[in-house]
C-alpha cells in the first residue's frame, strides 16, 4: 500500500519535471542522443548474451556469443575463404542485376511511352509477375543447368519486375504540364524523351533500381541454396549441415554489410543526378 503510494508520488514528480518545457540546449543534446538510441538495443542484447555465456548462465552452443561470431568472421577473412564467397555472391548479384535492370528499363520504357506496346506487353508481364519467382527454379535448372546461368537467371527475374513496374509507372505519371512545355518549343519525340521525360522519371527510376537491387540480394540466397560450392549462401547451408551456427551468423552479417554497401553505393553514385529534387529529406 505505502510502496504503491510512494512510487505514485515519485512518478508524478517525474511527470511534472517532464512537463516543464526543456531548454533549447537540452533539446539539441537529446536529439544527438536519439540517433544513438537505435544502437542501444542490439548492443545491449549482444553484451548481455556475451556476459551470460561468459558467466556460464547459458551454453551458447546454438546461439554463439558475439565474440565467437566475430572470431569466425575474422578467421574466414584471414584464410581468404570469406572473400572467395563474397566475390562469388557479388558477381552473381551484379550480373543478375545488370541483366534484370536492363530488361526492366527497356521494356518498362517501351511500355510506358507507347500505348500499343503497353497493351501488347503489360498483361503478359503482369501475369508472369503473379508467379512467385522461386517457382521458376526447377525450370531454370532444367533449361540452364545447375551452375551459374540458372542462378543469374533467377536473380535477373527477381530484379526485372520492380524495375519494369517502376519505370513504366514513372513514365505514365510524368506531369502533362511539363510535357506541354516541350511541345510548345516543338521538341521532336526523341528530344522530348531526352530533355523532359528522362530527367522527370529519374528519381522514381532510381528508387525502383534500389528495390530491384534489394530483391537481387534476396534471390541470390535462394539461388545459392539451390546448390552452390561457393558464395555466402553456400556458407549458410554449409554452416547448417556442419552444425556451425557461428558460421551461419557470420554469413548473415556479411550479407547485411554487403547489401547495405551496395545500396549506399547506388544511392551515392546517383545522388548528383537528382540533386534538384525538392524533397523533405534534403531540407532536414
Amino acid at each position: 500500500m505505502t510502496g504503491h503510494a510512494t512510487s505514485n508520488a515519485w512518478s508524478s514528480l517525474k511527470g511534472a519535471a517532464a512537463l516543464a518545457a526543456p531548454p533549447l540546449a537540452e533539446k539539441r543534446r537529446t536529439f544527438d542522443g536519439r540517433v544513438l538510441l537505435g544502437f542501444f538495443l542490439p548492443i545491449a542484447v549482444a553484451v548481455l548474451w556475451e556476459l551470460a555465456v561468459r558467466f556460464g548462465l547459458a551454453q551458447g552452443r546454438l546461439v554463439p556469443p558475439p565474440s565467437r561470431i566475430f572470431t569466425t568472421l575474422l578467421a574466414l577473412a584471414e584464410t581468404g575463404e570469406l572473400w572467395t564467397h563474397v566475390w562469388a555472391t557479388l558477381w552473381r548479384v551484379l550480373v543478375g542485376f545488370v541483366l534484370g535492370a536492363a530488361g526492366g528499363i527497356v521494356l518498362g520504357g517501351l511500355s510506358g511511352s507507347a500505348e500499343t506496346i503497353r497493351r501488347l506487353l503489360d498483361p503478359t508481364l503482369q501475369a508472369l509477375r503473379a508467379i512467385p519467382s522461386i517457382a521458376w527454379v526447377p525450370l531454370f535448372i532444367l533449361w540452364l543447368g545447375i551452375f551459374e546461368a540458372s542462378k543469374v537467371a533467377l536473380i535477373a527475374v527477381g530484379v526485372f519486375f520492380p524495375v519494369y513496374l517502376g519505370i513504366a509507372g514513372a513514365i505514365l505519371s510524368v506531369d502533362r504540364k511539363l510535357v506541354e512545355v516541350g511541345q510548345v518549343f516543338r521538341l521532336s519525340r526523341y528530344k522530348l524523351a531526352k530533355r523532359i521525360l528522362l530527367p522527370a522519371v529519374l528519381p522514381e527510376a532510381l528508387i525502383s533500381l534500389r528495390s530491384g537491387l534489394g530483391l537481387g540480394f534476396m534471390f541470390v540466397v535462394a539461388a545459392e541454396f539451390m546448390g552452390a560450392s561457393e558464395g555466402l549462401g553456400y556458407l549458410l547451408v554449409d554452416g547448417q549441415q556442419m552444425g556451425k551456427p557461428d558460421q551461419i551468423l557470420a554469413a548473415i552479417i556479411a550479407f547485411a554489410l554487403l547489401g547495405k554497401l551496395a545500396d549506399s553505393l547506388l544511392v551515392f553514385s546517383t545522388r548528383p543526378l537528382v540533386r534538384w529534387q525538392d524533397v523533405v529529406r534534403e531540407r532536414l
Binding site: 504540364k177 511539363l178 512545355v181 510548345v184 518549343f185 530533355r195 523532359i196 530527367p199 534538384w276
Partner: peptide, 30 residues
C-alpha cells in the same frame, strides 16, 4: 500545331525542376 513564332506563359511557372534558372530560360534556344 505549336509554331515557332508563338510563345506561351502558363498560369503556373512550369519551370523544369532539374534545370538551373539560366538553363530554364535557355530551354527553347537550342
Amino acid at each position: 500545331e505549336p509554331h515557332p513564332a508563338i510563345g506561351i506563359v502558363f498560369q503556373e511557372p512550369r519551370l523544369l525542376p532539374w534545370l538551373s534558372v539560366a538553363d530554364n530560360v535557355a530551354f527553347g534556344l537550342e
